[in-house]
């Protein structure tokens, strides 16, 4: 009866299956990647055009198109995950369950084959996942940034043009708007002291809405310098943060008091997290 144990375990069917399954998995991911590339190449110019033509101040058409495109990539990821679970991982479990004990020479040999299969398949999956993330990143950045600086400069010029064009609704005297307002504001008439209410244009309101983003755009280089420092340099962070808030305050001086309180909080949190 000891002969039974001495007989060498051999399972050529399993080896063939591992090989063909791995190959199918690779081909499947190759094809998904080719489709990803195709969709990225065709999608990027479309996204750029929609962004350019989108007259909505919040660029919502572009946003929904971007999400719809990204949705297809996520669909491909789901698809790959499903196949991975059903045809790779589950297969590994059932194959391993049918092997001789890992402590036996044959078992250890076959466990190694299955392990190699697992590593090859998962490595290939991670490569696919990296490429998918790169594609998503490329889509997100395809349209570039909104040119907030031009919009802001345009608004400054527009304000210079209109600031002397208003009259008091009570006495008809001229009222000069003293500075750019971003929300409805009471303004007294210099002649009769009547309380008028000034409502800024939609474009002026958008300046306030976009102020932080514009300040970020102006200080992007400082931010990048901090983000690329290794290890991350707190001095560079503080330099970026101060510069960003200075720009922010310059764009909307009325908010400087509030902004400074927010600045203090960010600074404290950074210091706390950095040194804890």
């Amino acid at each position: 009866m000891f002969d039974f144990f001495k007989k060498k375990y051999s399972n050529p069917e399993l080896l063939a299956e591992l090989q063909s399954r791995q190959q199918r998995w690779f081909v499947f991911l190759d094809r998904l990647e080719a489709r990803m590339e195709e969709l990225t190449d065709a999608g990027i110019p479309e996204l750029q055009q929609v962004f350019k033509e989108d007259t909505d101040p919040y660029k919502r058409s572009h946003y929904h198109m971007l999400l719809g495109l990204m949705g297809q990539f996520n669909n491909m990821r789901d698809k790959a995950n499903e196949v991975k679970e059903e045809n790779i991982i589950s297969f590994i479990y059932s194959a391993e369950a049918a092997l001789p004990p890992v402590t036996s020479p044959a078992g250890s040999e076959y466990y190694r084959y299955v392990h190699d299969f697992r590593m090859a398949c998962l490595d290939r999956y991670h490569l696919f996942d990296d490429r998918l993330n790169e594609a998503l990143e490329a889509l997100r950045h395809a349209a570039g940034e909104q040119d907030l600086e031009s919009a802001y400069q345009q608004e400054l010029a527009a304000f210079e043009k209109i600031k002397d064009q208003f009259t008091c609704k009570q006495c008809g005297g001229n009222i000069t708007i003293p500075k750019m307002f971003f929300i409805d504001t009471y303004i007294p008439c210099p002649f009769c002291q009547s309380q008028n209410t000034f409502s800024p244009s939609t474009a002026a309101r958008m300046v306030l809405h976009n102020a932080r983003e514009l300040a970020e755009q102006r200080t992007a280089e400082l931010r990048r310098a901090y983000e690329s420092s290794r290890p991350q340099d707190p001095v560079l962070y503080k330099k970026y943060l101060r510069a960003m808030f200075d720009e922010w305050n310059r764009i909307v001086p009325d908010m400087a008091g509030e902004n400074e309180k927010f600045y203090q909080r960010l600074l404290e949190e950074y210091t706390f997290n950095h040194y804890k």
Binding site: D184, T185, T197, R265
Partner: peptide, 21 residues
């Protein structure tokens, strides 16, 4: 309240949230 008052509150409440650690 009148609009200028509402709009200030509408601007300042989110500021409070930003300041509140």
């Amino acid at each position: 309240v009148e609009l200028p008052v509402w709009q200030e509150a509408n601007l300042l409440w989110p500021e409070r949230m930003k300041q509140d650690a």
